[in-house]
Computed example of a mutant assay.
Amino acid sequence: MGDAESALWLSEAFAAMAEALHGQPSRDQVLQEITELAATTADGAQYAGVTLLRRGKPLESPAYTHPLVPAVDLAQTETGEGPCIPNPDSDRGLAEPVVRIEDMSAERRWPRFACEAARLGVASMLSCRLVEERDVSGRLNLLAAEPGAFGVETAKTMAVLATHAAMALSAATAIENLSNAVASRQVIGEATGILMERHRVTSREAFGMLVRASQSLNVKLREIALHVVSTGQNPAELGPADFAGAARP
C-alpha cells in the first residue's frame, strides 16, 4: 500500500471510528468501544484496555479485551511504577502523550513493573494518554507477547485514535452527568411533594427536611429522596441502617 493509499485508508478508518465512538450512549460503552477499536486497528496489538487513575486510589481497568490487561494494571499498582503511575519526582510517563516499551526484558525506566509484566507474558506495550485532569488521568494501553510489536507509525496512529476517543469520552460523560442531574432533580421533586402532602409543610420546608437528613447522615440528597419516595418515611426518622452501602456526598 502506497503512502497516498495508506493515508486514505487511515482517514476512512478514523471517520468510521469517530462515528462509532460518538454513537455510544454512555461513558462505559465508549470506553469499551475504544478498547475494541484499538485492538483491531493497531498493528501488532493482541490486547487493549483503558486504565484510569483517580487521586489516592489504585489503578482501575474499566474496559479491556482480555483478562491479561487488568492483571498488568494490577502489576503497576503493586510495584508502584509503570507508564500509568505518576513518578513523584517527574511524573514521567503521565506527562508523555505516547509511551513505548519495546522489550520488557530490557526496560529500565520501570524495572519492577517490567519484570512482572514479562512474567505475565507481556513483552511489549504502547500507552497513549487518553485524559489527564486534576483528579483523574487515563491511558489507552496496547499489549503484545512479542518484543518490538509497536513501531513509530503505530504509535502515531494510536495517538490520533486516543484524541478521537478523548473527545467522545468527554461528550458521553457530559451527557451522562446531565441525565443523572435531571433524574436527581425529578426524584427530589417527588420526595418534596410527598412531604408537603403528608406533613402539611411548604416546599421550602420539605426540601429543608431532606437536606437536614442528608447532612446528618452524610448521605447524598438523592438517596434520601429515593428512600422517601419509596417508603414515605419522615427524613428525620431515618438512620444509618437505612442507607447501608449508599453513596456518600
Rank of each mutant, 00 (worst) to 15 (best):
S179T: 12
M104I: 03
L169Q: 04
F150M: 03
I101D: 01
A191E: 00
L68F: 00
P97L: 06
L195I: 03
A162V: 06
V187F: 06
I101N: 01
L143G: 04
T77P: 08
A106N: 09
A106M: 11
L140E: 00
A172F: 00
G93K: 02
L126W: 03
A174S: 10
S203C: 10
G151Q: 01
A159R: 12
D135N: 14
E107W: 08
T77S: 15
G121W: 02
A118S: 15
R109C: 10
E96K: 13
A191S: 03
M196E: 10
G82S: 02
V131C: 12
G138Q: 02
F113R: 07
T79F: 07
P86E: 01
D91S: 13
A71K: 11
D103T: 07
S203I: 10
A171V: 10
P83M: 03
P86G: 08
R134W: 11
A165C: 04
I175G: 11
R185M: 12
A162L: 06
E197C: 09
D91T: 10
E116K: 15
E176N: 08
F113S: 01
A172C: 05
E133S: 14
L169V: 05
A63S: 09
A118V: 06
T157H: 12
V99A: 08
I188R: 11
T79Y: 08
V201W: 06
E190A: 13
G148W: 07
C84H: 11
V72R: 04
I85W: 12
T163C: 12
I194E: 03
A63D: 00
A191W: 02
A63R: 05
T173N: 09
R200S: 13
V69F: 09
Y64G: 01
A149S: 10
R112L: 12
E102W: 12
E133A: 15
A123N: 02
A168Y: 05
A95N: 13
L161I: 05
A144D: 08
E146T: 15
I85T: 11
F150A: 02
S127H: 10
P111D: 02
A71N: 03
A183R: 14
L120C: 05
A117S: 07
L169P: 01
G82F: 02
D91Q: 13
L169H: 08
A166L: 01
G82T: 01
T79W: 09
R119N: 11
G193A: 13
E190M: 12
R139V: 01
T173H: 09
G93W: 07
R100M: 08
G148C: 07
M196H: 04
V187Y: 03
G138V: 05
E190Y: 10
E153A: 14
